[in-house]
Design a protein around this nucleic acid. Structure first.
Lengths: 108, 108
DNA sequence: CATTGAGTTCGATGATCATCTAACTGTCAT
DNA sequence: ATGACAGTTAGATGATCATCGAACTCAATG
């Protein structure tokens, strides 16, 4: 994927779809929330929060990363996750742009 | 559902999930976009746009309505659809609030 | 009333997907 | 290098769901 930097993200059609899908599952959304709550979050922390196997947690994180919503890197034997706030904001902006109706200039 | 008025919407957990699910399907997202493009949109119009059966269109609209993203009412033998922009905005706001990280800075 | 045209409802079907267990890789300490 | 812990990968399973065709309801018109 692109958007590896920290600048403003422009979403491709594909990424837009991946994000929407990623956000659609309740458990995955919860995982995202926990990651957002902590600054950097390990899987073990997540396993304590939800009654799911580590395989499932791993899967959800992989999807979140694939969507670009989360950035993860290994910290020794742990995995550190962080929310890509700019990507999330790009998604909401694009969503409003596409489905927000004709009125362009919000704020009268 | 509530939020039948035009005021600011506060999403319940359930509605938040329904919206996320509704937005997750590409075709349904397209349907939403067309509805947003026209001021009021009939099903027939939608059938011309996409290669899907009317049953499928009907299904998607029902889901969009269930999520609260679209408001529909019969206009004689036609169905008129309109995007609930406030609900869409409530969703994006809630999404950012939940997954946007710790930085609050929420408009003093 | 019969017909046509717009939308709904009803199973059925095939695809996608969340979840699990089990086996695996990799890292740290002893 | 042995064990213990963190995460990944693979395959299976059950649930959800987008889609369809067909039968249906409702409205307008001749």
């Amino acid at each position: 994927m692109k958007n590896t930097g920290a600048g403003r993200s422009t979403l491709t059609e594909k990424q837009f779809g991946l994000i929407a899908k990623a956000l659609a599952d309740p458990r995955r959304m919860q995982v995202l929330e926990v990651i957002a709550g902590e600054r950097a979050c390990a899987c073990t922390k997540l396993r304590e929060e939800f009654p799911v196997s580590k395989a499932t947690i791993s899967h959800h994180i992989k999807e979140l990363v694939r969507a670009g919503l989360v950035e993860a890197h290994r910290e020794g034997q742990f995995l550190s996750c962080e929310v890509r706030r700019d990507v999330l904001e790009a998604y909401t902006a694009e969503l409003l742009r596409r489905a927000g109706g004709k009125l362009k200039t919000s704020v009268a």
